[in-house]
């Protein structure tokens, strides 16, 4: 276990540093005033992603050890099902802490743009909908799996030895975790919208930095939800196939659902964010002073 934890620590460190370097490299800073918030956003994101991956690694390492037969699995199945959600909560807490400690306005003369902004304005719409849709599919899937179960943890009670099934025993905590995640995600998106605007930069640059933060939060949540859904439906698919004679149609359906969850996570991670494209092309789009 010590070796695994050391490897986890190394992975977390490497990923965190890589995110920081990548973020600094690709983000234009239109002025000196933009460097501090840019660095703050990069550090917050790096730490959040490192904590997310580290929590996943530490949470799932006992499962790997148990499957290799090195020792008995110390975690119950229900705990394992909640590992991605727990990692996502850590991710959101770190992101939220970064937004709550955002650099405050300084100086005796303060400026603000007279433009409204809300969580809907900063979150990429397609990604936001995909996360909410994934959460909805996961909740609906848990309800369906629980409804067709024979017992809280079994699909067919008579042949249930060693064949765990995600019935209500697993479904209820997973549904609660999904609802908590969605509520926490909306809260963090709201924090991103509410954090003080960066002064001395074009409005498009400030908005691009917010959109990038929101995109990172949504990507993390999509990964956690997809991982939970894929794991639950993979387990359900195996159990249904093994305990049903003759083989039912549910097994391939579960595997298709697993594939869709996996694809959604890959799409969320791979589709690039072009948040700073407008900021690069409109460097002088700063606000006009109302004050005489």
């Amino acid at each position: 276990m010590l070796l695994i934890n050391l490897i986890a620590l190394a992975v977390v460190t490497v990923v965190g540093v890589a995110v920081l370097v990548w973020d600094q490299w690709r983000t234009p800073a239109p002025s000196g005033a933009a460097r501090v918030p840019k660095r703050h956003a990069a550090i917050g994101a790096g730490v959040a992603w490192a904590c997310f991956l580290g929590a996943l690694f530490v949470g799932f390492s006992p499962v790997v050890v148990g499957n290799m037969g090195l020792q008995d699995l110390p975690l119950g199945g229900r705990t394992v099902a909640l590992v991605p959600a727990a990692a996502a909560v850590v991710f959101l807490v770190v992101h939220g802490a970064g937004d709550l400690t955002w650099p405050r306005p300084r100086g005796s003369v303060r400026e603000a743009r007279l433009a409204p902004r809300a969580a809907d304005d900063i979150a990429p719409r397609w990604l936001h909908r995909m996360v909410l849709g994934t959460a909805g599919v996961l909740v609906a899937g848990m309800i369906v799996l629980g409804s067709i179960a024979d017992g809280p943890r079994t699909f067919v009670a008579a042949s249930s030895d060693g064949e765990a099934y995600p019935g209500w025993w697993y479904g209820v905590p997973v549904i609660i975790a999904v609802l908590v995640l969605v509520a926490a995600m909306e809260g963090v998106l709201r924090l991103i919208a509410l954090r003080p605007a960066v002064v001395g930069v074009p409005a498009t640059w400030d908005m691009a930095l917010r959109r990038r933060s929101a995109r990172r939060v949504l990507r993390g949540q999509q990964c956690a939800l997809a991982l939970t859904g894929a794991g639950v439906f993979y387990r359900a698919g195996l159990t249904i196939a093994r305990t049903t004679e003759p083989e039912t149609f549910m097994d391939p359906v579960c595997l298709v659902v697993v594939g869709l969850f996996a694809i959604s996570a890959v799409v969320a991670l791979v589709v690039p964010g072009l948040d700073f494209r407008a900021a690069r092309t409109e460097p002088s789009a700063s606000g006009a002073a109302v004050a005489a």
Binding site: S108, V109, R110, E111, A112, R113, L114, A115, A203, G287, A288, A289, V290, A291
Partner: peptide, 11 residues
């Protein structure tokens, strides 16, 4: 074009 508000805290 977005309007900017200025507040002088020492005023």
């Amino acid at each position: 074009m977005t309007q900017t508000l200025r507040v002088d805290l020492e005023s």
